[in-house]
Amino acid sequence: MESIAPFGARKGRSLPSLVRFSFVALSLAAAAPASAQSADDYPNRPVTIVVPYSPGGATDIVVRAAARELTAMYNQTFIVVNKAGAAGQIGAEFVSKSPPDGYTLLGYPENIYSINPFVFGEAANAVSQRLVPVTNLGGSPTAIAINTTGKMKDVKTFADLIAFTKSATVPVTYATSGVTTPYHLLAQEIARTAQIKLVHVPYKGTSDALTDLVGGRVDILFGAPAVMKPMSDAGKVRMLAVSSAERFPLLPELPSISDTLPNVQLKNIDNGIAAPLGTPPAIIEKLNKAANEILARPEIKSTFERNLLLPMPGSVAEYTKRVTETRTERERLIKAANIGQMALPQ
């Protein structure tokens, strides 16, 4: 199947150009004179931050930590509400259609802008176009872990894993938290680049996949390092590498997969905050500045690090650039994996 380009693409315009055009247009729209509202008295009533997933995930963790600090900073309640479902689209659509006044924000998992628009059709793309980046909060790379018993017992490094898979006479299976997740895209890229065959076993969540990895029902797991580390520390699984271009500071003992496959890497999976298109730039800048101040606090760093999340401070422009680059990277991987349009999960 062919991959799905963002809807609204004009004939003759390349996808990277379209992506750059899209986010530049959103940034300019957010800065329009019609939004020239003062942020001096913002916030003067409670602010709701919608997390489009169930509690306990990375986006939920970083948003709740930020909300606690923002509540204390402004003496106004920042309420976190979970609106899960449809790969995050239910919560994202709710925020995208909310008044652009800074009082309804989105906990911004990357799939809303980097994956869903390419695989879930026009409605998902339209939602992504009605949101603007406010601030990054924290992120982490994808980790690769294996079962330590059975046929994988002698695999000690990522290079060993590639060599083992090339010579395997039985299928080698890998688990992820679902089709089209960054974890799935990374596994496909590794298989294609290393010219190995891997059989995908998708799960509804990384925790369930980890249980089956420990039990030997799957051979490899691609997922969030925070989920794997307790079992790795207990010797039940072996973490081999991370997807970032360089070693992850919170897991410095793990090499990058690019040490073995130089052309393969995956940008960290970011979790930030977005606002409805048209939100006054002064409010966006005020929130961004506050978030950067919060991310420098030792207690926030400690909370993030316990969950193997790296604080990601930066300006609105820097975050918007990163969103664009991540979207371009994920689109390329979706196209290379030959993933076409599919129905939204329930």
Rank of each mutant, 00 (worst) to 15 (best):
G314D: 03
A291W: 05
K197C: 04
N82T: 02
N268M: 14
P52A: 03
A209L: 04
T180W: 08
I294S: 05
A126Q: 14
L186K: 10
S243L: 06
V19I: 15
A290C: 06
P252D: 07
T260L: 03
I257A: 09
I269F: 13
I162E: 08
R297N: 12
A336D: 12
P133F: 07
Y42H: 02
G150I: 03
D40E: 12
L344N: 11
V24G: 02
V237I: 15
E253F: 11
S98A: 15
I300H: 06
A226V: 10
D41N: 12
P52F: 03
A65S: 14
Q76T: 13
Q129F: 08
I273N: 09
V80P: 02
Y113C: 01
S27V: 02
H200N: 15
A163C: 01
A124E: 02
L15V: 15
G12P: 13
V264I: 04
S27G: 13
K286H: 06
S27I: 02
L254W: 08
F7D: 13
L240K: 12
L251H: 07
E122R: 15
V63T: 12
I294G: 05
R297G: 13
A34T: 04
H200G: 06
S243I: 09
G138K: 06
V227G: 05
L287C: 09
S207L: 15
V24D: 12
L137V: 11
Y113I: 07
A84E: 12
V80A: 03
I339F: 14
L221S: 08
G56T: 11
A336F: 03
I220A: 00
K289R: 14
A224K: 12
A31I: 01
R306L: 07
A234L: 13
P46E: 04
P55R: 05
V199R: 09
P99E: 02
F21K: 09
A317R: 07
A191R: 00
E189M: 09
P43V: 00
R247C: 00
K153R: 15
L70W: 08
E246K: 14
T206I: 13
S232P: 04
K97M: 08
Q76N: 12
G56C: 11
D154G: 01
Y103V: 04
R306P: 00
T328I: 15
V51L: 06
K267L: 12
T59Y: 01
Q346S: 14
I144K: 11
K11D: 14
A337V: 07
R68G: 08
I146G: 11
P117R: 00
M73I: 07
S114G: 08
A5W: 05
E285R: 13
A317F: 03
V51G: 06
S22H: 04
G91S: 10
K204D: 14
P230Y: 00
L137G: 05
N111C: 01
N292L: 09
N268G: 10
A226W: 10
F164G: 05
E293D: 14
P225W: 05
N125V: 03
L254I: 10
E299V: 11
Y183G: 13
F248D: 01
P202G: 11
I339N: 09
A290V: 07
E246L: 04
S243H: 10
G56D: 06
R45Y: 07
G107V: 00
Y53K: 14
I257W: 09
K204R: 13
V199K: 13
T48A: 11
S177A: 15
Y203P: 08
I162S: 11
